[in-house]
Design a binder for these strands. Structure first.
Lengths: 212, 212
DNA sequence: GAGCGCATCAACCGATCGGTGGATGTGCGG
DNA sequence: CCGCACATCCACCGATCGGTTGATGCGCTC
């Protein structure tokens, strides 16, 4: 008795990657590549139209990004399993994707057979994580980090550009004491003791990428 | 009169990307994919063995990276044209690759026809740059930045982790005065006035990626 | 209403930083 | 030899930072 093929949509802004993935799954029994999209918005409408079993989703794409697309699919109750496939394993990428509803998260260095296995697992509803992503999630569970408030991010961004506390205060129309208070909160949240280390951690976590 | 096909080696640690590229050039007249490698060392020995016209080279790979491989090929006088194809357009990636001898530098978001055209141009010995890379090179020519010395990078790395000048001095077995001197040099080279801004610029330029 | 998170603010003080204006020594290339 | 880059070092001093120990006000949720 033959099972129906796993119907798949490939979402990635890089044509080369889409070609590579299509080639891989076309040559693998049990899969059907139902469609492709180069950004999140197109992925959402394709998924509505084609009702795939699994969506292979990149995160960073021009226009609508992967996390937003995942959120929209979840809001619409779309049953497709979403397997994130991306280059990035930074905190700022992993958590939002999983919180938005992704079933799995793999990095693009995965071997073809790993990827095939992961898509099969995702189609069954099983969670699939690459080792480095799993490690990060474990770390987050142990020491969940408080997010910085919008104001804290504003202060930190100015500090990263070289403002003294006084200059930052002037720019934000607040007192220097307030800037210092924000900074102390920032240091506590990021687990550091000074501005330079705060800037470093902010970059490592991609905190400055969220602006704009 | 038929011209011989352009013989190509594909070097990328991501199997998906290699598959995608192989598929693309196999289906395109005038090309022959002579071989593939997943890292720089393998690329160098393959190039010696197969004598390709063009090598499509990724930069960041485990083991021997792309820049090192380009350098080795240049040292051996290998005539193959090297076209870098990578995700990254940060200063720390672009300049070393071009200085090492790459004929061109493209980003992975290039359309298939752009890539085909670029490989043909590279085979003719023409330089090929993606727009964002060209912009960066122009910027570098206008305001060439001094690279930080190895010692300066060591100092800055410790500062980014939150060391005071005194702690950094202790860790490096030097005096605090020396640390401060290094920092002043760092600020001058990076065009900043304090440690936090220096850390930010270092991240933006990918200066901390070179370690290890 | 109470509690919470966030934003705002103050004064004080020791620690640290950044700037200044020097200095010496080594290795390398012209 | 000279000049350069790099590494190392000094003392002094004003500016800034980080920590401390408070405080008020606002909006939101239970």
């Amino acid at each position: 008795m033959n099972e129906p093929p796993i119907r798949l949509i490939i979402v990635d802004d890089h044509p080369i990657v889409r070609d590579g993935l299509r080639g891989m799954f076309t040559g693998e029994p049990g899969f059907e590549v139902a469609g492709e999209a180069a950004d999140g918005a197109r992925a959402v409408s394709l998924a509505e139209e084609l009702r795939p079993d699994v969506i292979l989703m990149d995160l960073r794409m021009p226009g609508t990004d992967g996390v937003t697309a995942i959120r929209r699919l979840a809001e619409r109750g779309n049953p497709a399993r979403i397997l994130v496939l991306t280059t990035y394993d930074m905190d700022s990428d992993v958590l939002p994707a999983i919180e938005a509803g992704a079933t799995g998260y793999l990095l693009k260095d995965a071997l073809p057979e790993e990827l095939v296995r992961a898509v099969r697992a995702a189609a069954r509803g099983e969670a699939v994580l690459s080792p480095s992503v799993a490690t990060r999630l474990i770390g987050q569970v142990r020491a969940p980090s408080d997010p910085l408030s919008a104001r804290e991010l504003e202060v930190l961004a100015l500090i990263a550009r070289g403002s003294t506390n006084r200059e930052a205060a002037s720019r934000l129309f607040i007192s220097e004491a307030t800037v210092k208070t924000h900074l102390l909160h920032i240091y506590a949240k990021l687990g550091v003791n000074d501005r330079a280390a705060a800037v470093a951690v902010a970059f490592e976590r991609g905190l400055f990428n969220r602006s704009g």
